[in-house]
Design a binder for these strands. Structure first.
Lengths: 146, 146
DNA sequence: CTTCATGCAAAACATTTGCAGCTGG
DNA sequence: CCAGCTGCAAATGTTTTGCATGAAG
């Protein structure tokens, strides 16, 4: 849990640093984003926050997530057809594995792409800021269900 | 132009094969998707189709693009904040370069990722169906403008 | 002729925004 | 206190859908 706490602490520190307030709703969102392996979407965060704070509005979730995104403390993953999903545990580019059946998203620990970034930059003249590498497929559980 | 024509012919053949009709509007959409390097969005396709067929509706563009996507004849690229963009010239996974300033999208010819796919598959047990590799940055022109 | 496709308008979502009142620091 | 947050509701933007009419094969 140390990792998770340091992530949470980091997020809180970054908020404070910029003079943003730490409301109970915000803290609840931070907690979820700092801890969740499941790359939740806004709706998912909303439901979980409402377990503790039933009057929380969806707009607040959006505002908080957007704020964190702009501060570089969460990474947004957008997919056609569904709302965006968020990774607060590791807000830097890294590969993801998406199951097309159960829609779960997990981190994929394969060699990173920084080498490729450099190659692309050199070949094209672009200044590469970020990247995204996602694999789509069927997870083991869903293969067995079939 | 041979390439483009074969892409167009391929798309037409696939439509016919499945018993879909080839209307003027559809043909116009196919032409744009088969030829465009710019990875247009629905709105862009709409505007260009309307130059030739001013009564075409947006719904028709959506329906045609969705149909082609389901047939695997166009690849959809979704990004947070903007509508999806489409690649009809090469509907198979391949890396893209996105300029964060001018929003242009071009193909990036870097070594492909099939090796990584196999590695991921072996390590995780997922059956990998597809993938996505995108680089975000600032293109040469936009760097100079700054 | 017989589907299937089109265009229109309405609906369905996802996300953002304006604003009055509340509250963290 | 009081700037910044919240909740609500309305606005926005995108994509989908239902249905009557029209056209492809």
């Amino acid at each position: 849990m140390a990792d998770l706490d340091t992530r949470l602490d980091e997020m809180i520190a970054r908020l404070r640093e910029k003079g943003y307030r730490l409301t109970p709703q915000r803290l609840a969102v931070l907690r979820i984003l700092a801890a969740s392996q499941k790359h939740p979407g806004v709706e998912g965060i909303y439901e979980r926050v409402r377990e503790d704070f039933p009057m929380t509005s969806l707009a607040t979730i959006y505002k908080t997530v957007t704020l964190l995104k702009e501060m570089g403390q969460v990474m947004e993953l957008s997919f056609g057809g569904m709302g965006c999903r968020y990774d607060g545990r590791n807000p830097h580019p890294h590969p993801h594995l998406i199951c097309l059946q159960c829609r779960n998203i997990v981190d994929a620990d394969v060699g990173d792409v920084t080498g490729l970034c450099k190659e692309v930059s050199r070949k094209t003249g672009y200044r590469i800021v970020s990247h995204r590498l996602d694999f789509f497929g069927i997870c083991r559980e869903c293969q067995e269900k079939k």
